[in-house]
Design a binder for these strands. Structure first.
Length: 384
DNA sequence: TAACCGTGGGT
DNA sequence: TACCCAAGGTT
């Protein structure tokens, strides 16, 4: 048992804990949202929802959740699905390693658990892509096990309830909140208790513009009672994404097919298809703007580099396209576009390249930057 | 531990 | 525009 006092947290007496559970669950019973994954006890479906909800909003998830279960209704369906199928089902959701790991976990379940979802916390946590939060969520929601599910919402709510003076963004501090939840969690309704805290944290106790007056547990909240709501949770600011400039190559051949390349597993957006991208230079200075990137003319050595790497003789066009910007969590891409018509040459064997007609684009997984590149290209072409 | 890994919504 | 944020996990 974690010594909470060591971290400046004074846990409540047993009577207060029971009173808190009742206040929270009564509120949840009256106010819980009617979400698709709350209409099932199928651990597979609950798992799908939990993975999709990682760092992703409920409204975004709902249509993806329905479509995913429609196409892959069981663990075994997921285990044997083609990579391009699962990527298409996840296309647009982001953090694509989530669905790759889900497939690995499904294969684990087929091999180790006879295709059944495991029913203990330890076994659930042994699955690829399932960390302590998700293991606790599935264990409590699908199997009624008294396991905490400590996510960002729970840490924020607990920070305010107990005035926790530890940064919730520091992984090592997670154990503090886990220790608090080990004591607080309702042993009779662990799944509802966990979900109630998350519902509370996602709306009334939101990170921005919270409405603490509306909280069903404001009488329990040290921060509310002491007027220190603005101080909690303690969290260090995030780092800015690093800007990188690319030359995007929209290359077509004489059959009006476009050159696409599959990103390798070590690359960002692994498994997705892209128009060739050549890095324009070293990491840019923070001050450089997208406008400046676009103003810079395509360098002859960039074109030569393309020919060297892709083995194509290209008739470069001088049409201008709007540059593309895309911001990831940790990187900011600035893409200048240029068009070329391949007239001769042969593609290298050490890259995954294909000539693809526009009518076949829909069967290739395309991430957002590539969609933006295509939209920019079409926008100029359609003006004529 | 800190970096990596997407995208869209809100202010 | 710029910045913050979202039911995290892996390496």
């Amino acid at each position: 048992m974690l010594d909470l006092k060591k971290y400046g947290v004074t846990m409540w007496e047993e009577e207060k804990i029971k009173s808190f559970r009742k206040a929270l669950l009564d509120w949840y019973d009256a106010n819980k949202r009617d979400l698709p994954w709350r209409r099932t006890r199928d651990p597979y479906a609950i798992w799908v929802s939990e993975i999709m909800l990682q760092q992703t909003r409920v409204d975004t998830v709902i249509p993806y959740y329905e479509r995913f279960l429609h196409h892959l209704p069981t663990i075994r369906d997921l285990a044997v699905a083609e990579e391009e199928v699962i990527l298409k089902l996840w296309e647009g959701l982001g953090y694509y390693s989530r669905v790759r790991n889900m497939q690995k976990a499904a294969q684990q379940m087929v091999e180790q658990f006879d295709g059944q979802f495991p029913r203990t916390y330890e076994e659930i946590a042994s699955l690829k892509g399932i960390g302590p939060y998700t293991a606790g969520a599935i264990a409590s929601i699908a199997f009624d096990l008294p396991e905490p599910a400590v996510d960002g919402n729970v840490m924020r709510v607990l920070s305010r309830l107990f005035e926790v003076n530890h940064d919730i963004g520091v992984p090592a501090n997670r154990k503090i909140f886990q220790g608090m939840m080990d004591i607080l969690i309702d042993p009779d309704r662990p799944g509802d208790f966990n979900q109630a805290l998350m519902d509370l944290g996602s709306d009334i106790e939101a990170p921005v513009n919270p409405r603490p007056e509306d909280s069903p547990v404001k009488a329990f909240s040290a921060a509310y009672l002491n007027g220190t709501m603005g101080k909690y949770p303690i969290k260090a600011p995030k780092k800015k994404p690093v800007p990188v400039a690319y030359q995007g190559m929209i290359i077509r051949n004489q059959h009006n097919e476009f050159l696409l390349e599959k990103n390798q597993s070590s690359q960002l957006l692994a498994g997705f298809w892209s128009f060739p991208l050549l890095e324009k230079g070293a990491v840019l200075d923070k001050q450089v703007s997208l406008f400046e990137v676009a103003e810079e003319p395509v360098q002859p050595d960039t074109r030569q580099s393309f020919t060297d790497q892709y083995g194509l003789i290209v008739d470069w066009q001088d049409e201008e396209f709007s540059p593309v910007q895309h911001i990831f969590s940790h990187r900011k891409w600035l893409i200048d576009l240029t068009e070329g018509i391949a007239t001769a040459g042969s593609l290298p064997a050490d890259r995954e390249l294909k000539w693809v007609a526009v009518v076949d684009f829909h069967s290739y997984p395309f991430a957002k930057p590539q969609q933006k590149m295509w939209e920019s290209y079409l926008a100029t072409k359609n003006k004529k």
